[in-house]
Design a binder for these strands. Structure first.
Lengths: 198, 198
DNA sequence: CCTACCGATCGGTAGG
DNA sequence: CCTACCGATCGGTAGG
């Protein structure tokens, strides 16, 4: 028994299937089959397919929020006022959360559409707040001359969708490890935004 | 009768619904309802839901292929050897195709997973060839010193997913028109890739 | 393009 | 966690 809980194992398996086929193309029987149990047996551990989706989306959102908050705090204290270092830390943290669980990340990015209206509204608020961190940091960097003058909304969308794209193609056994990918993405992001110097 | 054909109207309505909810969360009755007809009546014009998906994916792929080929040809003849101008033209063409039909673009980017194995394999080949154009252009630009030394695969993925993200948020009535968005995206892309000069 | 209908599969429940 | 089963909905067909 390696799994901490059956409930968690169900969410993990569902996350991978939702990533590959999408929420509504995945049946509860598909999830059960991956665990070698009967479809109906799932309901001893979860109350509905919708609740499994919510659990995945919620934990993914929480991970993005906490990891990036910690990273920017660290950057702010180790190199205070350095907007480029702060943004690089934000980008790296985001990339690391995706690579740690690409299934969850993919579901968070794409499958929130399948949530019921109440939960969808709640997750959209959190997503907007999260994206706001990127926008705000770009805005501050423009203000102090670190980043060149540009549209923070467009630049934020450009960067965030580029980062989120990793969830679709990343494989743990791939050519590049998380660190190298994070290096490249932080570099490309800073290049796109940083003002020319000298 | 504004529609050139009923078949085309079905595809257009399906494209929007597939964009919003995904292919498998959209029923044939949903498509029919948007056209104010009965679900079964669709089958007077199409042979299956799967064929409607294929028609959308195929036409989207074709549009990306032809628009970017034309744009790079134009750039290559008006400013020969200018890799930056060529890449900018490629980016602009891609953005314009997305904005011209974000539904088709979204379906092309995300819903190809729902295709049957044969068609999925066929579209993946075309997608890989298409993405190869971006990679190759980056590679050539690195070769002649226009672009800085970097991983063309990673840089290509970064840029293409950033561009494709537009399909998810673009609205014709939005704050910025297609041209302004294309300006920003071409600029951000070139900044991310271009070697420092002087 | 409609009504009437088909078998298959869906998410989920009852009762062990 | 299983068997047996439920009503609803799915994509699609027959026959006008």
């Amino acid at each position: 028994m390696v799994e901490p809980s059956r409930r968690r194992a169900i969410e993990d398996v569902a996350s991978d299937l939702f990533r590959e086929r999408g929420y509504s193309a995945t049946s509860v029987r598909d999830i059960a089959r991956a665990l070698d149990i009967q479809g109906a047996s799932l309901y001893a551990h979860v109350t509905s397919k919708a609740d499994v989706l919510w659990a995945i989306v919620d934990r993914a959102a929480t991970r993005f929020e906490t990891a990036t908050a910690a990273a920017t705090d660290r950057a702010a204290s180790s190199s205070p006022g350095d907007r480029a270092a702060e943004l690089a830390a934000l980008v790296r943290a985001h990339v690391e959360v995706i690579a740690a669980d690409p299934g969850d990340a993919m579901v968070f990015v794409h499958e929130w559409r399948a949530l019921d209206p109440t939960r969808r509204a709640a997750i959209l608020l959190r997503r907007d707040a999260y994206e706001g961190r990127f926008r705000d940091m770009i805005q501050r960097g423009i203000g102090d001359g670190t980043f060149r003058l540009t549209d923070p909304s467009i630049a934020g969308a450009f960067v965030l969708t580029a980062l989120n794209g990793i969830a679709a193609w990343y494989r743990p056994e791939g050519r590049l490890g998380v660190d190298r990918i994070a290096d490249h993405y932080a570099d490309l992001t800073l290049r796109a935004l940083t003002a020319d110097h000298d």
